[in-house]
Amino acid sequence: MFSKACEYGIRASIFIATNSSKGIRVGIKDVAKEIDSPEPFTAKIMQILTKNGIIHSAKGVGGGFEVSNEAVKTIKLIQIVDAIDGDKIYRGCGIGLKECSEAHPCPVHFEFKKIRGLLHEMLSKTTLEQLASGVKKGDFFLKTLNLE
């Protein structure tokens, strides 16, 4: 549903917010390792998130990425998605047709329209704080468990 960059951006934002709540800035290597993303790709995602004011980057000794306590309460998941993927997820055809509309619908148009609406609503209501809090409590996880 989301691009790989967006998935990594969401995970990275949650990881950074979780650490920021403990007063810890995290470096690019730590972020990349935690979200299972190549470091150069992670760096590009961090640039996008920083440019869009979702995370803050501090350089030098003791530097790294962080999210302020105030910002984490107001940043919505939709801001991360829009910063990385734009709004195409709310407009595109469910089966990828170039021409799909109310007047010329694809076979899944009307059901997919409902789903897109629910997705937009969820992304608009969910804060970074809610997600980070769930990770801190152990209710949610950012990594797949290795159950070999």
Score class of each variant (00 low, 15 high):
71 A>C: 03
140 F>P: 05
27 G>W: 08
60 G>I: 05
134 G>W: 10
62 G>T: 10
122 M>H: 14
4 K>W: 01
118 L>C: 01
23 G>F: 01
21 S>I: 03
100 C>I: 09
132 A>P: 07
17 A>K: 07
106 C>W: 09
38 P>D: 11
79 Q>F: 01
64 G>L: 00
79 Q>G: 07
60 G>F: 14
42 T>Q: 01
128 L>E: 02
31 V>M: 08
50 T>N: 09
110 F>D: 12
113 K>P: 13
110 F>G: 00
25 R>E: 04
43 A>W: 13
39 E>L: 07
7 E>P: 05
133 S>Y: 09
20 S>G: 15
31 V>I: 15
77 L>T: 12
72 V>N: 05
103 A>E: 14
137 K>G: 03
84 I>N: 05
143 K>S: 13
44 K>F: 00
19 N>I: 01
126 T>M: 11
33 K>E: 15
58 A>T: 12
108 V>Q: 03
52 N>C: 05
30 D>Y: 08
17 A>N: 04
83 A>P: 01
85 D>Q: 06
54 I>D: 01
107 P>M: 11
101 S>A: 02
120 H>Q: 11
95 I>L: 13
137 K>N: 11
63 G>Q: 04
93 C>D: 14
104 H>C: 02
43 A>N: 07
94 G>I: 08
125 K>V: 06
26 V>N: 00
77 L>W: 06
138 G>H: 03
63 G>E: 08
56 H>T: 14
29 K>R: 15
133 S>A: 14
68 S>M: 04
110 F>L: 03
12 A>H: 13
81 V>N: 02
96 G>D: 03
82 D>N: 12
91 R>Y: 13
68 S>H: 13
52 N>D: 09
